[in-house]
């Protein structure tokens, strides 16, 4: 990160994200539309309708993105306010989008501010947990993950780790396996006997 002015950098980044997200969704919608070609008419009707609507909305979004990125931002104020309903929405977006405060926005900030390293760490933990669950099953990975995560990230004392493991994995084992005979996610390595 350079020490570029805070005001413009996240803004540009958000725009880039919007571009990527919009284009990706457009790809999905087009694929969804193309897939309807082989279906009988009644089966295809709704997916067709929705994917076309989605594509139209996305094209509008692209147009507005292009407008904000390349065109004059200031001109947006009241220019198209009296047009159709969709352009109303778009103006509302430009008007309110940036100033939104609240829960989602707070999340947004946490996600936006975290640097690559922090993201990589978090993804590492997530992959460890879910990958481990896939390979060796929930009841095996859970104690390992809890102890590792609590020791490394939360810097919790061993006592807490042990209570934590018993309180989660132990209780789950007792309730699911012993009492209710319910399956828990099993790993592919230990499935079978």
């Amino acid at each position: 990160m350079t020490n570029a002015p805070m005001a413009t950098k996240p803004q540009k980044r958000a725009e880039l994200g919007d571009w990527i997200f919009t284009l990706a969704l457009l790809g999905v919608m087009i694929a969804a539309y193309v897939m309807t070609f082989n279906w009988p008419a009644s089966t295809a009707f709704f997916p067709e309708l929705l994917s076309i609507a989605g594509i139209l909305f996305l094209l509008m979004k692209l147009a507005s993105l292009a407008w904000t990125t390349f065109g004059g931002r200031a001109a947006l104020g009241g220019a198209s306010a009296s047009k159709a309903a969709h352009s109303n929405g778009e103006v509302a977006l430009a008007a309110e989008g940036d100033e939104d405060q609240g829960n989602e926005d707070e999340f947004h900030k946490v996600f936006a501010r975290a640097d690559r390293r922090t993201w990589a760490e978090v993804m590492g933990w997530v992959v460890m947990f879910f990958g481990g669950m896939y390979l060796v099953g929930l009841l095996v990975i859970l104690p390992v993950f809890i102890i590792a995560y609590l020791r490394v990230v939360a810097k919790a004392p061993w006592r807490v780790c042990i209570i934590y493991v018993i309180g989660t994995a132990g209780v789950m084992y007792a309730v699911f396996e012993l009492f209710l005979h319910l399956p828990l996610p099993e790993g592919i390595l230990f499935s079978g006997e």
Binding site: W39, S42, S51, S64, N88, G89, E90, A92, L93, E104
Partner: peptide, 27 residues
């Protein structure tokens, strides 16, 4: 949609499409 109507409509379409995944109830 929290004041982002166009984005909301797009996400809504995506959600509706997600709901259509599976065996179609008519044919």
């Amino acid at each position: 949609s929290r004041g982002q109507m166009l984005k909301g409509m797009i996400m809504g379409c995506a959600g509706l499409l997600i709901a259509l995944i599976g065996i179609d109830p008519q044919a």
